[in-house]
Design a protein around this nucleic acid. Structure first.
Lengths: 238, 238
DNA sequence: ATGGGCCTTTGATCTGGATCAAAGTTCGGG
DNA sequence: CCCGAACTTTGATCCAGATCAAAGGCCCAT
């Protein structure tokens, strides 16, 4: 548990918040946290819910407290691609957006800390460090997107699935710095297939093959234990 | 040709500059342009030159005046993926970078307007609008990267090649707002293959098939004329 | 507990794009 | 102008992953 110097000034809600030191809030002084804290609303979102419809758009922006959000793009003919995943404590929303083609959907149960657009914009005006944070997250997402471009363009099905598991393992738990060796996959096989540009059958076969090789074990289709990280990294061609 | 209100205050070099109203410079007042103008150096880069080695890293940053820069990522085993293309008047360089895995290489002959890191950082401090520009370019690149994720994950070889041609056609000429119907492909077939996650043979076959369908014509392997945009868009599944 | 719907796994076959092979272009240098 | 190297096209074959098909698991509502 991390300690704040001036915990007493920080809103109680924020003191125990998963996103307190990351995302947007990490750049804020206690004073701004109080200001932001007064205007946030916590929400719990069911898996499968479109986040734009769920009031995030209306509210403006949000921080992810827990759960996984998938960003998807749809082609005119209905083919779907997941273009990114967002985890706690990521900031959710698109400042200065002029209607992106991307939509966001809760993959698992997602807890959010939502706040109106005007609050963020006001704070950005008075706190340039905040804009730098947003810029930094955009650059991080850009790096991640380009890593997926490489994975999609160059890797085989088995390498893709192994890469996906490693990615999940390193992002799923905001408290773990590095890789988690036990976690639940927050996506269905169909989601994984849409993310990796494969079919559900191929995803399933590759997972089975990793299971038979005793690199991972899977319980009840969802919960994963990584038994051999070195082997998983080798399988991912990393 | 666009006119400035106070042309006399703008450095002569910038007045005729391709990047004057785009990229970074579009956010600058004549005063800052003069400041920046004094510390820039124009360079001409040969195709195939690694830009980090070519003094851009040493100088810090640059604006692309003409030509195409490819951003590539290399896998440990040597497989290569082009993760993005940059055109005039894009800003080149990575502020606050901590050693990205991506390298930049001139695909065609590239003309740059390069300047030291410190100059940009000083200007950003005094001109928040500049940081907003950089942020906006990062968001644009992020959208573009995610569009390629969709193309790589979902599209067939013929759709990929058609999408690539449309992308080139809309970015190659900074003066044309929309699509150019005649242009030179600044990449070799091997580059296109690395970009689309295909082999050179498949790229060549798809181009031949578009040529035979009289959607495009190709002269001397490089120069393209788009004969039927509607057909090309249909082929790209757009 | 039991049944039914949905998700997942496994098996058999097919195919788009990779790989292997060879001929045709383009272009710079002598 | 001719030669050779590098790039590109075209053809023949192969295979990773898609598609088609069917049999398990899992979970919720009755």
């Amino acid at each position: 548990m991390r300690m704040d110097i001036h915990n007493s000034e920080v809103p109680a809600l924020c003191q125990a918040c998963e996103a307190r030191h990351g995302g947007i809030c990490g750049a804020l002084e206690p004073q701004q946290l109080v200001h932001l804290g007064r205007q946030t609303r916590r929400r719990e979102i069911e898996p499968g819910t479109e986040l734009i419809a769920a009031g995030v758009q209306a509210e403006g922006y949000a921080n992810i407290l827990s759960g996984v959000v998938k960003l998807t793009r749809l082609m005119p003919d209905g083919r779907q691609q997941i273009v990114g995943l967002q985890f706690a404590p990521d900031f959710l929303g698109r400042p200065f957006a002029k209607g992106s083609e991307i939509s966001a959907e809760a993959a698992s149960t997602v807890r959010l800390c939502a706040f109106p657009q005007s609050v963020l914009e006001g704070m950005v005006r008075r706190l340039p460090a905040l804009e730098k944070r947003l810029y930094a997250q955009a650059l991080r997402e850009l790096d991640e997107a380009r890593e997926w471009i490489m994975i999609l363009g160059q890797k085989s099905a088995s390498e893709k699935v192994a890469s996906f598991l490693l990615h999940l393992s390193s992002h799923i738990d905001p408290y773990v710095d590095g890789y988690s060796d036990r976690f639940d996959i927050p996506l269905t096989r169909a989601d994984i297939a849409d993310f990796l540009g494969l079919t559900i059958e191929t995803v399933s076969r590759q997972l089975s093959s990793l299971r038979k090789a005793e690199v991972i074990s899977i319980h009840k289709n969802r919960s994963i234990a990584v038994l051999d990280f070195t082997a998983l990294e080798t399988a991912a061609a990393l």
